[in-house]
Computed example of a mutant assay.
Amino acid sequence: MEFVQHLPPPLLAPFVTAAHGYRVPSYPLGVHRGLPSSSMTLVFELGGRLRITGLSAAISSHAMVCGLHTRAALIDARAPMDGVQYALTPLGARALLGVPAAELHDRPVDLAEVLGPAAAEVVDQLHEACTWDERFAVVDRALVGNLEAGVPPEPAEVREAWRLILTGRGRVPVSAVAAQVGWSRRHLSERFRWATGLTPKQLSRVARFEAARALLTGPAPVPLARTAALTGYADQSHLDREWRALTGCSPTTWMREELPFVQDEDSSSAADSRT
């Protein structure tokens, strides 16, 4: 198993929150859950077609982008995988991909539908690349080349609402967020959903889930009841219900089935990280 972290060039910093390369063996359970998060996913799979179900559309492709979602994406992991994955900010979807994030909500999309023939060209260049640095350079170059400098940024109110929700880990009431940015709750929800694919309430759920997951998978895992209390759930039962709704299984099932995979990814990333 190999995970290699990458720091994209400064031009992409507002739009890319993380990037890594991976080589992983087949997953013993056959299906890996792609969990909801506050980032969109851009992935190039070179070992074979990546197959995803569980969202509003199924897909089989070497290159795809997936918008924000509030349920697990089911990834066919029966065969070894080898590729490159970038985490994108939904607020940068129009700048990098030319489409608003709302159009990608809850579905993986073949990158050819978004970028046309350029998507296949990137896949071909990745197959020809011999090192991780060369692979990352291919994707960086494609994204920078596609950067639409003329696309206006999302309204400052939307960007501030996004920041408030994430820094507050989903615990700031939507009404308070709306008041902070000077919009009505209804207007904020409409504009926010168009810009990101989620409503402020949905992003708050995802942000709280991410905070809980971080505590459960950290170097010193926090017990479930304590995690629930620290992340704003009413109690452990509330955490359990939300976890099932967002992942399709209980926290204990996820930790038993998926946590070893996550821990291997984290340890490999630490060992192989580069800038």
Results as ranks from 00 to 15, higher is better:
E2L: 09
F3K: 05
Q5Y: 13
Q5V: 08
H6Y: 07
P9W: 02
L11W: 00
L11V: 13
L12M: 08
P14E: 09
F15A: 14
H20R: 08
Y22H: 15
P25H: 01
S26E: 15
P28H: 05
V31Y: 00
V31K: 11
V31F: 11
H32L: 11
R33W: 09
S38W: 01
L42G: 01
V43L: 04
F44M: 11
E45C: 08
R49M: 13
R49L: 14
R51N: 05
I52P: 03
A58L: 03
I59H: 07
I59D: 03
S60E: 13
S60L: 12
S60H: 03
M64A: 13
G67A: 01
L68M: 11
L68Q: 03
L74P: 05
D76P: 14
V84H: 10
Q85I: 02
L96F: 07
V99F: 07
E103C: 15
H105Q: 15
D106A: 09
D106K: 00
D106T: 03
R107E: 06
L111D: 04
A112W: 07
A119G: 03
V122C: 10
D124Q: 11
D124V: 12
D124E: 06
H127F: 12
H127R: 08
E134K: 09
R135Q: 15
R135C: 14
R135I: 08
V138G: 09
V139A: 09
V139G: 15
V139Q: 13
L143I: 02
G145I: 12
N146I: 00
V151R: 10
E154N: 05
P155N: 10
P155C: 12
E157R: 11
A161K: 05
R163Q: 06
L164V: 12
R169V: 10
G170V: 06
P173N: 03
V177G: 14
A179Q: 10
A179D: 03
Q180M: 06
V181S: 13
W183Y: 15
S184A: 14
R186M: 11
S189Y: 02
E190A: 13
A195W: 00
K201R: 13
Q202V: 00
S204M: 04
R205Q: 14
F209T: 04
F209G: 00
A211N: 00
A212M: 14
A214M: 01
L215D: 13
L215S: 04
L216C: 03
P219D: 12
P219W: 11
P221Y: 09
V222T: 11
P223K: 15
L224P: 04
R226E: 09
R226C: 00
R226Y: 00
R226F: 00
A229G: 13
A234E: 11
S237G: 07
H238D: 12
H238T: 08
W243G: 04
T247F: 01
S250N: 01
W254S: 15
M255Y: 01
F261P: 00
Q263I: 09
S267Q: 05
S267K: 11
S269Y: 09
S273N: 09
